[in-house]
Design a protein around this nucleic acid. Sequence first.
DNA 1: AACTTTTTTTAGGATAGACTAAAAATTAAT
DNA 2: ATTAATTTTTAGTCTATCCTAAAAAAAGTT
Lengths: 217, 217
Amino acid sequence: MTPNKEDFIKAIFELGGQTQVVTNKDLVRTLSISAASVTEMNTRLLKEGLITHLPYQGVILTEKGLTIANQLIRKHRIWEVFLAEKLGYDWNEVHSDADLLEHASSDLLIERLNIFLGEPTFDPHGGVIPNKDGSIPEIHSTPLIECTKGVQFKIKEVDDQEEFLEYLLYKKVHLGKEYTLVDIEPYDGPLTLKSTSGEETIIGHKAAFKILVELID
Amino acid sequence: MTPNKEDFIKAIFELGGQTQVVTNKDLVRTLSISAASVTEMNTRLLKEGLITHLPYQGVILTEKGLTIANQLIRKHRIWEVFLAEKLGYDWNEVHSDADLLEHASSDLLIERLNIFLGEPTFDPHGGVIPNKDGSIPEIHSTPLIECTKGVQFKIKEVDDQEEFLEYLLYKKVHLGKEYTLVDIEPYDGPLTLKSTSGEETIIGHKAAFKILVELID
DNA sequence: AACTTTTTTTAGGATAGACTAAAAATTAAT
DNA sequence: ATTAATTTTTAGTCTATCCTAAAAAAAGTT
Ligand SMILES: [Mn+2]
Ligand SMILES: [Mn+2]
Ligand SMILES: [Mn+2]
Ligand SMILES: [Mn+2]
């Protein structure tokens, strides 16, 4: 296993490759490599039994590939917790360093780091940290976009694109914060949130897809 | 710069390449690669102006190469401090993980980690941590082998080969510990040390080359 | 159904790194 | 001074990863 293969498998997973066929096009866009390189990498991973390949359609992860993806994500997210909690990174800064460190971490290192961090369950974006064996703890949260006017909720997880995190930082939206959804405009209009302390925040319709919340009874 | 090049330059430095010519043979032994691969890497580094090459003799680091070596050693040693102090590694365990992490560390990460660790001066083996700009703080210690019978000293630095560190762990020799050199046998014989608490430790002649001490007046 | 656009694959190359085997140069030993 | 042993270099391959350009297949449009 090499860093490139690991990142490739992780990309397939993040594009839904556990359940759906992921197209070469998507991987070209995500990894910023040529279409030819994607075809090549597919061939390699197929030979190693990490993916199933449907010619001219795309790829799906095998059980083996899925385990590798989740173990890499475990490393990535544990490093993110370290960077955020111990080194004072903001949540929009952690991604690129964790993306390198994840490939330079022995299993022993990760386990010791995990203990040092107090065996966290979530990364700084609310992403759940997979178990050592590659399995994933069950989580129970709803996309904000599916909420109806009037409900109360708590922020549980957000998309980890750097620009989106900067946007949330600007909007003062962070994990654990509680709001009431006071308004949601039709025709893909904006959402108005009101925090427990009374400030109102307006966020765009598309942002509401990238925020997962837990409803408060 | 790639991990391989970095490690190669570091190896040249550790073999004395700042001042002496380092032979291909030495690099073959240190890096466990073929002689042909050493010649090849020499050609590459020469082209980049990181080394001076004397055909059929060996290589010396240029200023540029030296800076890269010291900056890599800085990263390596800062990681070693982290592994030992925060994750509970013994001093014989830190090397291999630090050897990977050093290549996956942005400058920003290292500076933040350095601050988190309290800007340490030495690594767990007493090796001095180079400055950010690649310069090296002056240090003042003597090889134990050069000490004479009767002197008192404090352990300042030890060779960082894994087996040697295990040996020292077994002999209960650690950084900062103070001893009196009660006996040193002629004909490359053993040395007898007596700690302040009274225990006597006998160590081999060759081990005394790998231990640096500071004399206590 | 035929034409156009998009996507995937193939073909042909490039670079970094590492290997073995053979040739050339240097050093050591008669 | 030869010969022998060691070390370095060259030549020829290999794998992983990336690329561009062209061909083939699939999807979209009239
Ligand atoms: Mn990565
Ligand atoms: Mn994350
Ligand atoms: Mn290294
Ligand atoms: Mn060290």
